[in-house]
Design a protein around this nucleic acid. Sequence first.
DNA 1: CCATCCCGCCAGAGG
DNA 2: CCTCTGGCGGGATGG
Length: 557
Amino acid sequence: MSDLPPEKTNMELSSSSSMPGSSSSLHHSYSRKQKSLGLLCTNFLALYNRHGIETIGLDDASSKLGVERRRIYDIVNVLESVGVLTRRAKNQYTWKGFAAIPAALKELQEEGAKDTFHRFYVNENVKGSDDEDDEEESSSQPLSTSQTDTSKPSLPDSSKIDNRREKSLGLLTQNFIKLFICSQATIISLDEAAKLLLGDAHNTSIMRTKVRRLYDIANVLSSMNLIEKTHTLDSRKPAFKWLGYNGEPTFTLSSDLMMQAESKKRVFGTDLSNVSVKRSKTHDSATERSLKMKHHAIAESSYNRIFDAHESRHGSRGYEFGPFAPATGTYPTAPLEDSSKRAFDVENLVSDYRPSYQNQADEAEKYDDMVEFLDKVAKNVDTAELTPEERNLLSIAYKNLIAGRRAPLKRTRSIEKKETKKGNTNNVSIIKDHRVKIESEITKICDQVFNLIDSHLLPSASTADSKVFYLKMTGDYHRYLSDSKTGAEKIKAVKRTLEVYKSAQAIALNDLPSTNAFEAAITEMHGVREESYEETALITNLILDRITLWTDELKWS
DNA sequence: CCATCCCGCCAGAGG
DNA sequence: CCTCTGGCGGGATGG
């Protein structure tokens, strides 16, 4: 009577399942990993590891990254203990950068040595002294967290160093690091670490909590490439290996050149759609405040809005359930009427610009810039030629877009292959659906690019420079397209790619100083390789053929 | 089933 | 009192 069930998600998402029993699907359409502290930290780093960053406001960070403030505290605390950040004032941190890491580590090391010494003295609780490794452990940890806060536990003598509040995370992080750098151990499992860091841990619940924290820390640390997850040599247990400071991780900012294949899981612009599974406590009073509102237009609750728009566009198709994020609204139906409507659909693009860590907040400024810019382009495309800066922006904008599809596609394919091999027909079909969806998104994006360039940008391009730019861009997107196609369509795309590159280079050779820009792209085409189908041979031949032909021709002119 | 670890309640610390 | 911090552990998630 008194306890009414806490309201679930307000959406009428729940399908009409008559039976209450039978475990019916949770519909968590997002993966837990997409919200991990590690990822968040990576994004945080990518966001602030830039020139010109001096201070960091927590509000700013949390709204840009789209997380609750609580999470920011976690990250900031561990970052601070490594020297990357320093607290300046309430709500304000100073960015020190990765460069500060070595110094911080050194300090920790010295401190660690001292602690060990100290610890030895204080610590004497033993029953059998059966610790196999005599690593050192740092203490200064007030053992025993009394659950009954009787306040003033009195404690022994020394306890000034014993901070009052500095109970965990920050300190824990440092101690955790000390474990590595002050001992020979290179690999430590979290259980071990917890045991060591806790003076003595028989109390399971304490241990448990400690380990939880350790996980958090480990995630952050590994997102900075300071440590890495491996296995203990002997057993099978997962553990962490110290890597030390080797230079900072690369961010995934769209660089003009190629992208460094994804090495792990640090993708920035992947798709993801978390359909309001959030339940902020105090409705919006909190949110309201954090929204800076400095952006115009689209802000608001654009995500949902756009979603709705898309959904209603083609019937009220329900959401896709499945192991993967539902991806952004797609148009399964052929875009036949696109060209007649608008050069391209800005809203559509905007919706694709969600950064990976979106919850309720707005996006990072760069996305706003992009969106704003695209908006502008859409309106002026007929009247004015783009400036070089604008061209670049456009290119970057689309690059991000497409990159956010290509990486997932790659991953999906590899999963699909694996599952196929295992014979999980069920999974395969789900995965295949997903793959097809991504592929169609790629097609859609490419079509937009082609359309935009062919019907507007190229015709109005007045300099050789810009012509080459657009042609090369066209070629690039045909290449991306070819990646997502198979069979005849692939061949066609490959052909197109080469043709366009060719004409681009022709102009370039003629009117521009020098250009080797295409060499890389062309070489890459050699690498077009896929399944062990005969298709491969065919394509490869085609390409080689094309290239020889083409290079010959170039020689003459 | 068990290893991970996200979420957010709520108690202190400031102001 | 209000806001900023951040300990802490429930319980969901993924393997």
